[in-house]
Protein backbone atom coordinates (compact mmCIF):
# COMPACT_ATOMS: atom_id res chain seq x y z
CA UNK A 1 0.00 0.00 0.00
CA UNK A 2 1.76 3.10 -1.24
CA UNK A 3 1.54 6.72 -0.21
CA UNK A 4 -0.79 7.51 -3.12
CA UNK A 5 -3.20 4.82 -1.98
CA UNK A 6 -3.25 6.29 1.51
CA UNK A 7 -3.99 9.78 0.16
CA UNK A 8 -6.70 8.42 -2.13
CA UNK A 9 -8.29 6.51 0.73
CA UNK A 10 -8.35 9.58 2.94
CA UNK A 11 -9.97 11.63 0.15
CA UNK A 12 -12.60 8.98 -0.52
CA UNK A 13 -13.52 8.55 3.14
CA UNK A 14 -13.69 12.31 3.68
CA UNK A 15 -16.02 12.72 0.71
CA UNK A 16 -18.25 9.90 1.91
CA UNK A 17 -18.34 11.44 5.38
CA UNK A 18 -19.62 14.67 3.83
CA UNK A 19 -22.46 12.68 2.25
CA UNK A 20 -23.33 11.38 5.70
CA UNK A 21 -23.36 14.93 7.10
CA UNK A 22 -25.72 15.93 4.29
CA UNK A 23 -28.14 13.23 5.38
CA UNK A 24 -27.91 14.30 9.02
CA UNK A 25 -28.44 17.95 8.12
CA UNK A 26 -31.41 17.15 5.91
CA UNK A 27 -33.04 15.30 8.79
CA UNK A 28 -32.23 17.80 11.52
CA UNK A 29 -32.55 21.27 10.00
CA UNK A 30 -35.84 23.19 10.13
CA UNK A 31 -36.54 24.70 6.71
CA UNK A 32 -35.59 24.64 3.05
CA UNK A 33 -32.70 27.09 3.17
CA UNK A 34 -31.07 25.35 6.13
CA UNK A 35 -31.47 22.00 4.42
CA UNK A 36 -29.91 23.41 1.26
CA UNK A 37 -26.98 24.61 3.33
CA UNK A 38 -26.45 21.06 4.56
CA UNK A 39 -27.13 19.38 1.23
CA UNK A 40 -24.69 21.46 -0.80
CA UNK A 41 -21.65 20.37 1.23
CA UNK A 42 -21.23 17.05 -0.63
CA UNK A 43 -22.36 18.66 -3.87
CA UNK A 44 -19.11 20.56 -4.27
CA UNK A 45 -16.54 19.59 -1.65
CA UNK A 46 -17.61 15.98 -1.32
CA UNK A 47 -17.68 15.34 -5.05
CA UNK A 48 -14.34 17.07 -5.51
CA UNK A 49 -12.75 15.01 -2.73
CA UNK A 50 -14.12 11.75 -4.11
CA UNK A 51 -13.05 12.65 -7.64
CA UNK A 52 -9.57 13.57 -6.38
CA UNK A 53 -9.30 10.21 -4.67
CA UNK A 54 -10.52 8.40 -7.77
CA UNK A 55 -8.11 10.29 -10.03
CA UNK A 56 -5.18 9.45 -7.76
CA UNK A 57 -6.27 5.82 -7.69
CA UNK A 58 -6.98 5.53 -11.42
CA UNK A 59 -4.05 7.62 -12.65
CA UNK A 60 -2.83 6.45 -16.04
CA UNK A 61 -6.14 5.05 -17.22
CA UNK A 62 -7.42 6.64 -20.43
CA UNK A 63 -10.79 7.71 -19.02
CA UNK A 64 -9.66 9.84 -16.08
CA UNK A 65 -10.64 13.06 -17.86
CA UNK A 66 -14.27 12.09 -17.31
CA UNK A 67 -13.80 12.36 -13.54
CA UNK A 68 -12.32 15.84 -13.96
CA UNK A 69 -15.29 16.71 -16.17
CA UNK A 70 -17.73 15.59 -13.47
CA UNK A 71 -15.99 17.83 -10.94
CA UNK A 72 -16.08 20.82 -13.32
CA UNK A 73 -19.76 20.23 -14.06
CA UNK A 74 -20.55 20.13 -10.36
CA UNK A 75 -18.72 23.41 -9.84
CA UNK A 76 -20.70 24.99 -12.69
CA UNK A 77 -24.16 23.61 -12.00
CA UNK A 78 -24.42 23.52 -8.20
CA UNK A 79 -24.66 27.34 -7.78
CA UNK A 80 -27.25 27.62 -10.56
CA UNK A 81 -29.60 24.98 -9.18
CA UNK A 82 -29.15 26.22 -5.60
CA UNK A 83 -29.96 29.77 -6.69
CA UNK A 84 -33.14 28.72 -8.46
CA UNK A 85 -34.38 26.48 -5.65
CA UNK A 86 -33.72 29.11 -2.97
CA UNK A 87 -35.40 31.85 -5.01
CA UNK A 88 -38.54 29.77 -5.43
CA UNK A 89 -38.41 28.82 -1.75
CA UNK A 90 -38.36 32.49 -0.76
CA UNK A 91 -41.27 33.36 -3.02
CA UNK A 92 -43.34 30.38 -1.95
CA UNK A 93 -42.72 31.34 1.70
CA UNK A 94 -41.08 28.09 2.68
CA UNK A 95 -38.56 30.18 4.62
CA UNK A 96 -38.95 30.55 8.36
CA UNK A 97 -38.78 34.30 8.76
CA UNK A 98 -38.34 34.15 12.50
CA UNK A 99 -34.97 32.45 12.05
CA UNK A 100 -33.64 35.14 9.70
CA UNK A 101 -31.34 37.77 11.13
CA UNK A 102 -31.26 39.92 7.99
CA UNK A 103 -33.96 39.76 5.32
CA UNK A 104 -32.64 41.91 2.52
CA UNK A 105 -35.58 41.19 0.22
CA UNK A 106 -38.23 42.02 2.82
CA UNK A 107 -39.52 45.30 4.12
CA UNK A 108 -36.82 47.84 5.00
CA UNK A 109 -38.41 48.39 8.39
CA UNK A 110 -36.48 47.45 11.51
CA UNK A 111 -33.38 49.58 12.15
CA UNK A 112 -31.99 46.96 14.55
CA UNK A 113 -33.05 43.67 13.03
CA UNK A 114 -30.94 41.38 15.18
CA UNK A 115 -32.04 42.72 18.57
CA UNK A 116 -35.20 41.09 19.97
CA UNK A 117 -38.20 43.36 20.34
CA UNK A 118 -38.88 44.24 24.00
CA UNK A 119 -42.58 43.29 23.85
CA UNK A 120 -42.31 40.43 21.36
CA UNK A 121 -39.05 38.58 22.00
CA UNK A 122 -40.04 35.87 19.55
CA UNK A 123 -40.07 38.41 16.76
CA UNK A 124 -41.90 41.63 16.07
CA UNK A 125 -45.15 40.63 14.33
CA UNK A 126 -45.22 43.82 12.26
CA UNK A 127 -41.71 43.36 10.95
CA UNK A 128 -41.89 39.61 10.71
CA UNK A 129 -44.79 39.53 8.30
CA UNK A 130 -43.85 37.55 5.22
CA UNK A 131 -43.02 39.79 2.31
CA UNK A 132 -42.39 38.73 -1.20
CA UNK A 133 -39.40 39.71 -3.26
CA UNK A 134 -39.26 42.99 -5.11
CA UNK A 135 -40.36 41.47 -8.39
CA UNK A 136 -43.10 39.26 -7.02
CA UNK A 137 -46.36 39.25 -8.85
CA UNK A 138 -49.09 41.49 -7.43
CA UNK A 139 -51.60 39.43 -5.55
CA UNK A 140 -55.16 39.55 -6.78
CA UNK A 141 -57.96 39.11 -4.32
CA UNK A 142 -60.57 36.79 -5.72
Amino acid sequence: MSIADVIASVCLIAGCFLCLTAGLGLIRFPDVLNRMHAATKPQVLGVLLVMTGAVIRLAGQPIVWMLVLVGVFQLLTAPVSAHMVSRIAYRRRHVRRDLLLVDELGKPADPLPSRPHPEHPEGDPDVDEPADGPDATPRTTS
Binding site: C16, V32, M36, I88
Partner: peptide, 27 residues
Protein backbone atom coordinates in the same frame (compact mmCIF):
# COMPACT_ATOMS: atom_id res chain seq x y z
CA UNK B 1 -43.34 18.68 3.90
CA UNK B 2 -42.96 20.66 0.70
CA UNK B 3 -41.94 19.94 -2.85
CA UNK B 4 -38.76 21.98 -2.49
CA UNK B 5 -37.56 19.82 0.38
CA UNK B 6 -37.93 16.85 -1.91
CA UNK B 7 -36.00 18.64 -4.67
CA UNK B 8 -33.12 19.33 -2.29
CA UNK B 9 -33.22 15.74 -1.04
CA UNK B 10 -33.21 14.39 -4.60
CA UNK B 11 -30.18 16.50 -5.41
CA UNK B 12 -28.34 15.18 -2.37
CA UNK B 13 -29.37 11.61 -3.21
CA UNK B 14 -28.02 11.85 -6.74
CA UNK B 15 -24.76 13.27 -5.41
CA UNK B 16 -24.57 10.34 -3.01
CA UNK B 17 -25.14 7.91 -5.89
CA UNK B 18 -22.42 9.62 -7.92
CA UNK B 19 -20.04 9.36 -4.96
CA UNK B 20 -20.85 5.68 -4.62
CA UNK B 21 -20.14 5.00 -8.27
CA UNK B 22 -16.87 6.93 -8.06
CA UNK B 23 -15.82 5.02 -4.94
CA UNK B 24 -16.58 1.74 -6.70
CA UNK B 25 -14.55 2.80 -9.75
CA UNK B 26 -11.66 3.92 -7.59
CA UNK B 27 -11.48 1.00 -5.21
Amino acid sequence: PSLLDRVVATDALLVTIACGIAVYCAV
